[in-house]
């Protein structure tokens, strides 16, 4: 595995794309979170908004770039034909995939920490201006608060799981554009389909299955009882999606010609 990791790391580090994308993850997450924290307002106590969730809103933008990173790392090789060389040098395909997934996820987690911390800082600075004040029942955001810490750590893990999910889908689909479409469609359109469904029971089930809806339940700090899934269970749903994508992608990688 060390050789595979070293080889994948070399490929990643020697092109400018991944570095820029990781920077993009941080910038997009913090920027969108900051905008959300700036525009939301809470006019009176009991406005029903979750300040932590608002300040982590940018994770929904950051995840698109995480998906792009994973897709670029995997499908880039198929686009250029490099994959033939990779697999000739490292014939144990499952291990190669594991090395790729480890690296992409590790880098995402590394970028996720500053992205999430920056978002919380932006929220801490901007939210009081929109009425999220102690008088309205919103103490300043702080990681000393157990729920906030869970939301922050969970958001970083969520980004990591999105990286795994995208890696698996990319290996299965191979084409860059199709892989981007599949991952972004799964992430962004599932919530729309959930809202479209009129039957409330079915809506609840779909909500529990949707990677974004269920996964971001980990960001909730208020009104946990009304959520269709609990915070960690929601992250478990994304983990299942990621595992299914990786297993499917791994099997296809073993069975198909490259």
């Amino acid at each position: 595995m060390r050789r595979e990791l070293h080889a994948e790391w070399t490929k990643l580090r020697t092109v400018p794309g991944p570095g820029l994308l990781l920077l993009g993850v941080v910038v997009a997450t913090v920027a969108v979170s900051g905008v959300a924290a700036g525009v939301m307002d809470c006019a009176a106590a009991g406005c029903g908004l979750d300040a932590v969730r608002v300040s982590l809103f940018g994770v929904q933008a950051g995840q698109a770039l995480v998906a792009l990173l994973a897709v670029a790392v995997v499908c880039g090789e198929y686009g250029t034909g490099m994959v033939a060389t990779t697999l000739a040098a490292m014939p144990r395909r499952t291990v190669t995939l594991a090395a790729k997934a480890t690296l992409v996820t590790g880098l995402t987690l590394g970028a996720g920490v500053p992205a999430v911390l920056g978002s919380l800082l932006a929220g801490r600075l901007l939210l009081p201006g929109g009425g999220f004040t102690p008088e309205h029942g919103y103490p300043p955001l702080s990681l000393a608060d157990a729920a906030t810490l869970r939301a922050a750590a969970g958001s970083v893990l969520y980004l990591g799981l999105v990286a795994l999910l995208a890696t698996g889908v990319a290996v299965a689909v191979r084409d860059q554009v199709a892989a981007c479409g599949a991952v972004l469609g799964l992430l962004h359109l599932f919530p729309i389909v959930v809202l479209m469904v009129r039957d409330e029971d079915l809506q609840r089930i779909l909500w529990q299955l949707s990677p974004v809806n269920a996964g971001l339940a980990v960001q909730a700090t208020t009104d946990l009882a009304s959520m269709p899934v609990g915070p960690w269970a929601g992250l478990g749903v994304v983990a299942c999606w990621a595992a299914a994508a990786l297993v499917g992608g791994g099997l296809l990688l073993r069975l198909r010609d490259a």
Binding site: A64, L65, C180, L184, P191, I192
Partner: peptide, 20 residues
């Protein structure tokens, strides 16, 4: 391809999803 696809989807679909 990947960059263009992400740009197009981000420009067309994401604002609509966020808005609705």
């Amino acid at each position: 391809g990947a960059a263009a696809a992400v740009a197009a989807i981000t420009a067309l679909v994401v604002p609509y999803v966020l808005a609705t």
